[in-house]
Amino acid sequence: MDKRSPTLDEVILEEAAGWLIRIEEAPETLTSAPFEHWLYADPRHVNAFTRMANEWGAAAALVVETPTQKPYVRSQSHAGGLRRWAGKLRAPWLAGGLGALAAAAVALVFLYVPMSAPAGEAILYTTDIGEISRFDLADGSSLVLDTNSSARVSLTRTGREVSLERGRVFVDVKPDADRPFSVGEGEVSFTALGTSYAVERESDNWRLEVYEGTVRLKSLRESGVYGAGTGASFKPAGLTSFDLPQTLEPGQPNWTSGRVVFDATMLADAVQAFESYSDKHVTLIGGDLQTYEVSGVFRLTDMEAFLQSVVILTGARLSETGDEVELEAE
């Protein structure tokens, strides 16, 4: 399965390239209804358009003024795809020159700063398996989606709602007392006025981690307020509160930077964490491997490096057939 980020999907990059060429040939295209419709049809279109322009050396004309962004994780194969597209399309673009596009730069900046859908409409944000992506919202907040996650964001004058359909999200909320910010789905919600927190959903099971400020949990059966450094696991069977462990970077979970910390973690549990970021399935053969404890900091999107470390540490034999991987104890 291709794990490249939807934000730079080759089909969307091709569409973005087409719009860039049309704007160069006819600058009025920049404010046309068809272009605006394409822009707002999918949040990935903005990313593809600006990134493609930057690859072609048009950054000076296309810079969009947004708050400072933290880096997000993307695969090496994805970066290679971008270079391939730039290589294919760079020549005709540069042959036409950047004059018309540069002249339209002011209009482009004003068009892109909102980065939002028409009022009342929700925008769907998704990530593929192995992808961790950051998205900036029109209200000044931002969210980071973990691997294989999906969330719909609705921003109105009275509130801001993130409907988490699956997976995990970390939100950095811009304070606005008149527009509460909540993450949840159905009867479950986690609401804050200005804070940073992560919410994970697996079917009817929810997990809250608060990294800054306070968050109010509310459902038909449970409610509570949680402060920075605390969290809660909410399941149909009940609610469990806990304290958060120290993270590699203050104020955010480790997975947002694509890393995981194991501290005497059983190998079976560690492997399960990596499988969430890969199409590969790992089978551990031998009881000693199942209970072997691993410690250290690893890159979540690099299962191969982790397995090679295990081989070195345990002397296990590694074999692979397609997406099936076996680790067998000596």
Rank of each mutant, 00 (worst) to 15 (best):
D2K: 04
P6I: 07
E10N: 03
L13W: 02
A17F: 02
E25P: 03
E28N: 15
T31K: 14
P34C: 13
H37A: 10
H37T: 11
A41H: 13
H45W: 13
N47W: 10
N47E: 14
R51Y: 02
M52H: 03
A60P: 00
V64N: 01
E65R: 01
K70H: 08
Y72G: 13
V73I: 12
S75R: 05
H78N: 15
R83M: 14
R83C: 12
R84L: 12
K88G: 12
P92D: 08
W93N: 00
W93E: 01
W93I: 01
A95Q: 14
L101F: 00
L101V: 01
A107Q: 08
L108P: 02
M115A: 11
S116M: 11
A117I: 04
A122D: 05
A122V: 04
T126N: 04
T127A: 03
S133V: 12
F135M: 04
F135R: 04
D146Q: 03
S150Q: 15
L155Q: 07
T156R: 13
G159R: 09
V162D: 04
D172S: 13
D178E: 11
F181A: 03
V183R: 06
E187Y: 03
F190M: 15
L193H: 13
T195P: 08
S196W: 12
Y197D: 08
Y197V: 08
A198W: 07
S203E: 12
D204K: 03
W206L: 11
R207A: 09
R207G: 06
V210H: 13
Y211S: 10
E212P: 08
R221K: 12
G224H: 11
G229N: 06
T230H: 09
T230K: 09
G231W: 04
A237E: 15
T247N: 05
G251R: 05
Q252Y: 07
P253I: 06
N254D: 12
W255K: 00
R259H: 10
F262P: 01
Q272K: 02
F274M: 00
K280D: 01
V282F: 00
V294S: 12
F298Q: 04
T301W: 01
F306H: 06
R317F: 14
D323N: 06
E324H: 13
E324R: 15
E330W: 10
